[in-house]
Amino acid sequence: MSVVVANLVGLALIGLIVWYFWLSKPQGSLAGVGAGGTQEAFILVKGGYSPDTIRVEAGKPVKLVFNRQEADPCSEKVVFDAFGVSADLPEGENVPIEFTPSEPGEYEFACQMGMLRGKIVVS
């Protein structure tokens, strides 16, 4: 009896893991539009990127301001592989990253080890 229960609970947990980490897609936040039509978003770096999904429009300049609030060296660099941009994030400092996405699509950004991830959804 307890074996059956344990296995059912186990399977349910596995299902939960698969759904939570892989299947569910959070909505993400829309970048605000600042002066001069630049799409701006502020991203807090602490154990992850908050927000980690930023929606922007193609063809307009994007400015993302990163602020790293931890000493953990894992997050000390942020890399936008698709745009060939990277930046060091000194603790507590605002670091702006600017680029203009031309093609709609999803572009990942991540720490150097690829452990922390976020993405830009260009529409």
Binding site: Y20, F21, S24, P26, K46, G47, G48, Y49, S50, D52, D72, M115, L116, R117
Partner: peptide, 17 residues
């Protein structure tokens, strides 16, 4: 740091060491 790190990652729907 294991717990704060795990929680921060969990909120972002990710998991790490």
């Amino acid at each position: 740091q294991f717990f704060t790190g795990a929680w921060a990652a969990f909120k972002h729907r990710s998991a790490n060491m």
